[in-house]
Amino acid sequence: MKQQSYFRGASANALRVIAAAAAAMTAPGAHAQSGLTFYGVADDAISYVNNQNGHANLYLRQGNLYASKFGLQGSENLGDDMRAVFVLENGFDLNNGTQASSGSIFNRQAYVGLSSERYGSATLGRQYTPYFQFVGPLSSVAALTGAAGAHPGDLDGMDTTVRASNAALYVSPQWHGLQAAGMYALGGMAGSTGRGQTISVALRYSQGPLALAAGYLRMDNAFASTTSAAFDSSSSGSFGESVVNQGYVTARSMRDVAIAGNYTFGAARVGLMYSNVRYLPGARSLFTDTASFNTYGTFVRWQVTAPVDLAAGFSYTQASKANGISHAARYTQFSLKQGYQLSKRTALYALEAWQHASGQTLGSAGEVVNAAPAVGDSQNLTGSSTPTQIVAMLGIDMKF
């Protein structure tokens, strides 16, 4: 009963915030200079997994083609090529109506700032990192979706799992197809400014059929809790936990580097990507040696007709030998997607993926265990008890 009361209260608060924002943006004299957009996505699918921790499962899974969410996006024209902007965005579970993050109304994004075509944009709040914003659109996730197309357990954070709170972000204007971005998220720890900080920079180039991007991300563990057995929630950054990386979530710091490139041939687009993810140990970590994961990926997407698109992808992830592991983990994944656009806002889709794991990694207590497969970003903590996992989904997605 307490949980139900909490969610009713949180939903009521969210509605009050939305109503207040809408009233402010439509007040007399403000409408001509301002714009307010209410937007969102509802996405759900019938999903089959051949092995979740030892058992097959047929169930409903939301947020597969796109994450289920709603949000408010507003702007005000300040004159002289300058606008004030804000975004408030909440994720939710379509199958039970709960918030994606308990106690956080706008868990996905919440920021305010200034934007100019001439000078770029500067924003403050909870935001996606340049690493994700620039490299993510060129990764397999953009073509295949993260549910079945992200690299194992979304290890390199290409499926909207990496955000930073207390963040200052600057994105430059484009110059002959070139654009840069930088972020610094304050840890907010009194007496230790850098503790729990997040740093990210990225560069991208887009001209004609060619698009290239490179990004760097560093997230430091705040270690605010003496009993924390994970990446402390007081840290400004956070990343997804899965059976692939759960032995390293007590890291002192996590560092990501990724590069990606796409080339468009008429109705087809091909992409290549490489990422390196490192978990650095500290005095309070459950492991002692730096752990490294290298992922190589490729995909092709074909717009067969206006409503029909097909995509296929392959990735190979190789872990380092460290922390008593003699046979480092390996993950091989094949992914497929078929989409049919019923209208501009509604689509039907089918997703299929196969992943095989071999070698060893660390378990949640820091012990050496056999590597378990976890397809894309859909089976993070429900890995297979055998070396192979298969996922198939049939769903519908509607934007509003």
Rank of each mutant, 00 (worst) to 15 (best):
M1S: 15
M1I: 14
K2A: 14
Q4T: 08
Q4A: 11
S5Y: 10
S5D: 13
F7A: 07
F7W: 14
F7G: 06
R8A: 15
R8Y: 04
S11T: 10
A12L: 13
N13S: 13
N13G: 07
L15V: 09
V17C: 05
A24Q: 09
A27D: 02
A32H: 15
Q33G: 07
S34V: 06
G35C: 03
T37D: 14
G40S: 02
V41F: 05
A42Q: 13
D44E: 13
A45H: 01
Y48I: 03
N51C: 02
G54Y: 00
A56K: 13
L58W: 07
L58V: 15
N64L: 04
L65S: 09
L65R: 08
A67L: 13
G71M: 04
Q73H: 07
S75T: 08
S75Q: 06
L78K: 05
G79C: 03
V85D: 02
V85Q: 03
V87L: 13
E89C: 06
L94K: 06
N96K: 07
T98W: 15
T98D: 06
Q109T: 14
Q109G: 05
A110L: 12
V112T: 14
S115V: 11
E117N: 11
R118N: 11
R126S: 05
Q127G: 01
Y131A: 01
V135F: 06
G136Q: 01
A143T: 06
H151F: 12
D154V: 00
D156S: 15
S165K: 14
H176M: 13
H176V: 11
H176W: 15
L178M: 09
A180V: 12
G182P: 04
A185P: 08
M189A: 12
M189L: 08
A190I: 14
G191C: 03
L203H: 02
S206A: 11
P209D: 01
L210C: 09
L210N: 05
A213D: 11
R218I: 04
M219N: 00
D220Y: 05
D220R: 09
D220F: 04
A222L: 01
F223L: 12
T227S: 12
A229W: 11
A230L: 15
A230E: 08
S236L: 04
S236K: 03
S242M: 01
V243K: 04
N245Q: 03
V249D: 09
D256Y: 09
A258C: 05
F265V: 13
G266P: 05
G266K: 01
R269I: 08
V270T: 10
R278G: 06
L280D: 15
A291P: 04
F293Q: 10
Y296D: 04
A306F: 09
A311Y: 02
Q318S: 12
A322E: 07
G324D: 02
I325P: 02
S326K: 14
Q333D: 07
S335N: 12
K337R: 06
Q341S: 11
K344W: 05
R345Q: 14
A347T: 09
Y349P: 00
Q360K: 08
V368A: 11
N370Q: 14
A371I: 03
A372L: 08
V375W: 02
V375C: 00
D377L: 01
T382Y: 12
G383I: 00
P387S: 04
Q389L: 04
V391H: 10
G395C: 00
G395E: 01
D397P: 07
